[in-house]
Deep mutational scan, measured.
Amino acid sequence: QTIHNGDQTYHYDNPEEAIKVAQKLAKIYNLTVTVKGNTVQVH
């Protein structure tokens, strides 16, 4: 599972963990989380 947060990319073995982290980032920075296959984008 990969999270793209602007210019930063994070890799997680656990998809659920990746989505949790993405949602935390989204709340902190007031962003949107988009899940596309194995990629979670925060923008």
Results as ranks from 00 to 15, higher is better:
residue 38 N to I: 04
residue 42 V to S: 01
residue 42 V to H: 01
residue 14 N to P: 03
residue 2 T to P: 10
residue 36 K to L: 13
residue 23 Q to E: 11
residue 38 N to V: 05
residue 31 L to T: 05
residue 41 Q to A: 05
residue 22 A to G: 05
residue 31 L to Y: 07
residue 18 A to V: 01
residue 7 D to N: 11
residue 15 P to L: 07
residue 21 V to D: 03
residue 38 N to L: 05
residue 30 N to D: 05
residue 10 Y to R: 03
residue 2 T to N: 11
residue 42 V to A: 02
residue 14 N to S: 15
residue 27 K to P: 01
residue 24 K to G: 04
residue 22 A to L: 04
residue 38 N to W: 04
residue 26 A to K: 13
residue 31 L to G: 03
residue 1 Q to R: 08
residue 29 Y to Q: 06
residue 15 P to A: 12
residue 6 G to N: 10
residue 14 N to D: 08
residue 9 T to I: 15
residue 25 L to P: 01
residue 25 L to C: 06
residue 24 K to V: 13
residue 38 N to D: 03
residue 12 Y to L: 07
residue 17 E to D: 09
residue 36 K to S: 13
residue 16 E to V: 06
residue 31 L to K: 04
residue 8 Q to I: 14
residue 20 K to N: 06
residue 20 K to S: 08
residue 14 N to I: 03
residue 21 V to L: 06
residue 4 H to T: 08
residue 8 Q to Y: 14
residue 9 T to F: 15
residue 24 K to E: 09
residue 25 L to F: 05
residue 13 D to I: 07
residue 23 Q to L: 14
residue 41 Q to S: 10
residue 38 N to P: 02
residue 2 T to C: 15
residue 7 D to I: 15
residue 8 Q to T: 13
residue 32 T to F: 10
residue 13 D to H: 07
residue 28 I to T: 05
residue 1 Q to E: 10
residue 1 Q to W: 05
residue 19 I to T: 07
residue 39 T to K: 04
residue 37 G to N: 04
residue 41 Q to L: 14
residue 2 T to G: 11
residue 6 G to R: 13
residue 30 N to C: 14
residue 27 K to T: 10
residue 16 E to R: 08
residue 8 Q to K: 14
residue 10 Y to H: 03
residue 30 N to I: 05
residue 10 Y to D: 00
residue 7 D to M: 15
residue 24 K to S: 08
residue 21 V to S: 06
residue 5 N to P: 11
residue 2 T to D: 12
residue 37 G to H: 03
residue 21 V to W: 15
residue 9 T to M: 11
residue 15 P to W: 10
residue 29 Y to W: 09
residue 20 K to H: 06
residue 20 K to A: 13
residue 42 V to T: 02
residue 36 K to Y: 11
residue 15 P to E: 13
residue 30 N to K: 08
residue 24 K to M: 15
residue 32 T to S: 09
residue 1 Q to P: 12
residue 36 K to M: 13
residue 5 N to S: 12
residue 24 K to T: 11
residue 32 T to A: 07
residue 38 N to A: 06
residue 16 E to P: 02
residue 23 Q to R: 13
residue 32 T to D: 05
residue 22 A to S: 03
residue 33 V to P: 00
residue 8 Q to D: 07
residue 34 T to V: 08
residue 23 Q to W: 09
residue 35 V to N: 01
residue 14 N to V: 03
residue 23 Q to A: 12
residue 13 D to Q: 11
residue 25 L to V: 01
residue 6 G to D: 08
residue 40 V to N: 00
residue 33 V to D: 00
residue 29 Y to C: 15
residue 33 V to T: 03
residue 27 K to C: 15
residue 25 L to R: 00
residue 14 N to H: 04
residue 43 H to S: 06
residue 38 N to E: 02
residue 8 Q to H: 15
residue 25 L to D: 00
residue 14 N to C: 10
residue 34 T to H: 04
residue 12 Y to Q: 01
residue 31 L to Q: 03
residue 11 H to P: 02
residue 3 I to A: 10
residue 28 I to R: 09
residue 24 K to D: 06
residue 17 E to H: 06
residue 41 Q to H: 11
residue 20 K to E: 08
residue 18 A to C: 11
residue 24 K to L: 15
residue 4 H to L: 10
residue 4 H to P: 09
residue 32 T to V: 13
residue 20 K to Y: 12
residue 38 N to Y: 03
residue 43 H to T: 06
residue 20 K to G: 03
residue 6 G to C: 15
residue 12 Y to E: 01
residue 27 K to F: 12
residue 43 H to P: 02
residue 2 T to M: 13
residue 22 A to Q: 02
residue 24 K to I: 15
residue 32 T to Q: 09
residue 5 N to E: 10
residue 5 N to L: 12
residue 34 T to M: 05
residue 8 Q to F: 14
residue 43 H to Y: 08
residue 37 G to F: 04
residue 27 K to N: 08
residue 26 A to E: 09
residue 15 P to Q: 08
residue 22 A to D: 00
residue 23 Q to Y: 09
residue 30 N to T: 05
residue 4 H to D: 08
residue 24 K to Q: 12
residue 4 H to Q: 09
residue 21 V to P: 00
residue 9 T to H: 06
residue 29 Y to G: 06
residue 1 Q to V: 12
residue 10 Y to I: 04
residue 38 N to K: 05
residue 4 H to Y: 12
residue 16 E to I: 07
residue 43 H to A: 04
residue 4 H to K: 08
residue 16 E to W: 12
residue 21 V to C: 15
residue 36 K to I: 14
residue 33 V to K: 00
residue 1 Q to I: 13
residue 20 K to L: 12
residue 35 V to E: 01
residue 13 D to T: 10
residue 12 Y to R: 02
residue 6 G to P: 09
residue 42 V to W: 03
residue 3 I to F: 09
residue 24 K to R: 14
residue 16 E to T: 07
residue 33 V to L: 03
residue 8 Q to G: 07
residue 28 I to A: 04
residue 10 Y to E: 01
residue 35 V to F: 02
residue 22 A to F: 05
residue 20 K to W: 13
residue 23 Q to G: 05
residue 13 D to N: 13
residue 8 Q to C: 15
residue 35 V to T: 02
residue 4 H to S: 09
residue 28 I to S: 04
residue 37 G to R: 02
residue 12 Y to I: 02
residue 41 Q to C: 15
residue 3 I to K: 10
residue 13 D to Y: 04
residue 43 H to N: 04
residue 39 T to G: 02
residue 13 D to P: 10
residue 21 V to N: 07
residue 12 Y to G: 01
residue 43 H to R: 09
residue 15 P to T: 06
residue 9 T to L: 14
residue 13 D to M: 09
residue 37 G to L: 04
residue 15 P to K: 06
residue 31 L to P: 00
residue 27 K to S: 10
residue 5 N to K: 12
residue 17 E to R: 06
residue 25 L to G: 00
residue 13 D to W: 06
residue 39 T to A: 05
residue 11 H to M: 09
residue 32 T to M: 10
residue 7 D to P: 14
residue 36 K to Q: 11
residue 27 K to A: 12
residue 25 L to M: 05
residue 26 A to Q: 11
residue 5 N to Q: 12
residue 29 Y to L: 08
residue 24 K to A: 13
residue 35 V to G: 00
residue 40 V to M: 03
residue 4 H to A: 09
residue 7 D to Q: 11
residue 42 V to Q: 01
residue 19 I to L: 13
residue 13 D to S: 14
residue 22 A to I: 04
residue 24 K to Y: 15
residue 24 K to F: 15
residue 30 N to M: 07
residue 22 A to E: 00
residue 36 K to D: 10
residue 3 I to H: 12
residue 9 T to C: 15
residue 36 K to P: 01
residue 43 H to G: 03
residue 7 D to A: 13
residue 14 N to M: 03
residue 29 Y to T: 07
residue 23 Q to K: 12
residue 13 D to V: 07
residue 31 L to R: 03
residue 27 K to E: 12
residue 10 Y to F: 11
residue 43 H to D: 02
residue 16 E to H: 07
residue 19 I to Q: 13
residue 20 K to Q: 08
